[in-house]
Each structure stands twice: as structure tokens, then as C-alpha cells.
Design a binder for these strands. Sequence first.
RNA 1: GCGAAUAUAGCUCAGUUGGUUAGAGCGCUGGUUUGUGGUACCAGAUGUCGUGAGUUCGAAUCUCAUUAUUCGCCCCA
Length: 431
Amino acid sequence: MSSIDLNPPRGMRDFLPKDWVFREKLMQVFNDVSKTNGFLHYETPVVDSYELFERKAGEEISDQLYDFTDKSNRHISLRAELTPSMVRLYAKNKESLPFPAKLYSIGQCFRYERATKGRKREHYQWNLDILGENNISAEAWILSTAIQVMNKLGLNENDFQIHVSNRALLSDFLLSIGIEKERHSELMIIIDKKDKIPAEVMKEMMEEIKIFSSQIEKIIEFLDKKTLEEIRPFVQKDSLALQELEHLFAAAKALNIAPYLRIDTSIIRGLSYYTGIVFEAFDTNKEFRAIFGGGRYNSLFDRMTGKDIPACGLGFGDVVIEELIASKFGRTETFPGIQVILGQFEDALQGKALHLSAEFTKNDISSDMLLCSLPPKKFFTQANKRGAKFAAYLAPEEAKENTFVLKNMESGEQKILPLEDISSILDFIKA
RNA sequence: GCGAAUAUAGCUCAGUUGGUUAGAGCGCUGGUUUGUGGUACCAGAUGUCGUGAGUUCGAAUCUCAUUAUUCGCCCCA
């Protein structure tokens, strides 16, 4: 018989139980923090129509969609992100959902591209969105929620920083130095690379697209500004974009998250649907890719559904945060422990062991069982390897008295207890 | 899509100019202890050397193809 390739498909991951421990905790934190901040959970399919994900604005993201034709010749794609499906869901069900609404979801997303550090062909992403709210405190609320997640994972303002900008601000500035709107896109692609390439190379790239050197000087100067006060002279006095950033920082101060935020006018967020404030979180040393990112996308609903709903949101993937946490705390290498493991010396005693496990279940004690009979040495070795806190062993001598051995695997303390005396059993386990 | 590196035991990795029977540590199995795990000591098994072809008297080692992984570029929700 020919054997199959045991590797998962390119860029996809298998998770061993020990690998999943972290992800399970991460998702638990995502869920808990979303709920305690008023976000409602929704789910959408892993596949959706190709049309939903396709970008019409000349972007070539469509090439990276994992798409196929189904048996009825429908053009289907695995989701590359959660936002389009969420937009579809909200536009369809708006009347039965709150308005404005806070929504969240955690889902596996796929993209067909070369895997690199921090990017696979598949990842889990947490999405937070606030829909129907123009007030900039929505952005602050989302950032605060994400920061709570980071704090629960043991990371604080010394570990990461959120770089904040406003696309409209950059746009206003470029207009003010005489660069017309049609040229902003190609220029923003260059500005987005600011931290990746040397300043000289960036200048050359700008020269290539016919930006005057006097303009380049001003752009570089603008990109170096780190505070709102420094930016003020570069834009008009009544700049709405600047007011939005002021509003965000005021709200951040009130939410006690100001230490996490910094102005970084080079943040662009690709060429996607963002219209206003944009942000990306980086580890302090900028060793890794962005941990999470997002911003305001006020025209996406209108473009996709014809319904004019302002929105802002955030996407937070599992890959970079795992790398960051592994570098700070190391990787988890253990199984999650079970409270009690049961076993028996011979098959005749298995009924009693099974019955005892049912008692544990009834009392909310997690239990595992070695289903084949084992001599004590092997049983306790197995109990130890599986990380059980207690081991319950049914052996002939005790069974004659209708008792069994219950051992604390950490302290080594051991008791012979009657099988029916549930309260004593629970006392020993809970002590 | 482009470029580079890597692939040897369950895991992390050695393996000389191509040369006899393929190595270590961890883990695994057994024993010291036939009713008690972790520590220690002793012993044992690890395997299609990623896959397929080629060169050669002889290939883990050289060549080509192929698959996967990692890093960089392109791109980026």
C-alpha cells in the first residue's frame, strides 16, 4: 500500500495538544474581554461567495484568495478576512441587531500566498467592530478592549505600543503641499515602507514618481512628527482629521490607555478600505510584524451594500502574538492537567472504577481513565506522565473491603477510602 | 511570482576527501523495586538518511527533479 504525505498542505498548520494550549487560552481571553466590553458574538461561514471578497479597486488581493468552483458552478472562496462577511451579515440583519452595534468574532482565515515570518496561509483572527457610530470614542473603546487582552496575556506598555495615524490627515497634508489626490495611493505605498527601507531609498522612490524635492523634504519632516502639537503647523487650523486624533487621545487618557498610544504618521494600513483613523500595534523592539491593526472604514458598507453605515474595527491574529509571547515567556510544553486519573489492577474491578468516575463527573471533578488494567507501577507511571493531580486505583486487596487507593500525585500523600464515602473523597481532593 | 538555505530516530541535532554494521542528548521500553510515579543507576529498541531518478565498484554524503519547512523579496486583511 502506498503511503500518503503526512505533511499538512503548504502554509497550513497541525496543532499538537501542547501547541493548542496557548491558542485555547488566547481564544478564551478574546471571548472574555469582548463580552466584558459589550461586544456581541456572531459567526459567519468559512466559505463565502468570491464576489464578497474580491476587491474591485484594482488591488490584486483577489490573487491571494483561496477560491474554487463548487459543484453547481458557484464561485466560492475561503474567507481571507472576517470583515466582508460581517458587513454582509450586519447589512442583512440590521433591524434585528442593536444600532449602533458592537460585534466580535474569532475565525480561521485563509490566503494563498508565500508563508513568511508571522504570516501563514491560514491563521485565526479576532475581529472587533463598532458599527453605526461616528464618534471617535469608538476607536478608543476598541483600542482599550485590545489592550485589556494584551494585559491579560501579561504584556504592558513596555512590551508593545500602538502607532496611530489618520489617513485623512496625511491626505490633507499632501494636498496642502500641492500633491493632488490621484497621486496619493502610489505615494502612500512608499510612505508605508518607512520603517523597512533607508531614508535615501525612500527619497529615490519618491523622485521616481515625480515628487519634487521640496515636497519630499516636507513629507520627510512631516513623517518625523511624534506629537499632535508638532503636527499642528502642517495642517489647516480647522483640520477635522487633527480634531479626530485629539478626540482619540482625550478618550484614551480617560480610559487610562494613553501610555500605549503614539502618533506615527507613516501608518497607512495597506490600500484597503480605511478612511480615517488607522492604527497598528508593534512590539517595542519592532522585531515582529504588527500584532493587531485596524481603523475606521466609513465607506465600505455603502460601497458593498448601499447602506451608509460608519464603522471602525480591529483584526488581531494568532501568529504574531504567539511568537511574541514565546519570546518573552517561552513555550508551553505540558498537557493541561486533569484532576483525577482512574485505573484498576484487573478487569473484574473495572466496573467499580467506571462507577467512581461517574461520581467524579457528577461532582464536577475532571477525570480521565486508563481503560486497560495495569499493575500499580505502570498505573502510577501513566498517572504521573499525564499530569493528573490525583490518582484513584482499584486493587483486589482494597476492593474486598469495598475501598480504593486515592493518592495525591504532587505530595505523595495517599489514603484508603471507602468507595461510597463520596464526601471524604471530595474532601481529600479539594483540601 | 522571485531568490537563498534546510530535510538523518518520536523531538533537538552530529555524521570527516564518497568506503564495511548509521551516532549523541532528550523522550520511549525493560530492570535495580513482582502493590506505587517523579530522582538516581543499569540495559534495550529506535531509522526506506523527505521522495524519485542519475553518476559510481560503492551514496546520508555528488548531480538532477520533486515535495515540505525556514529566511528574505513582491504583496498585505
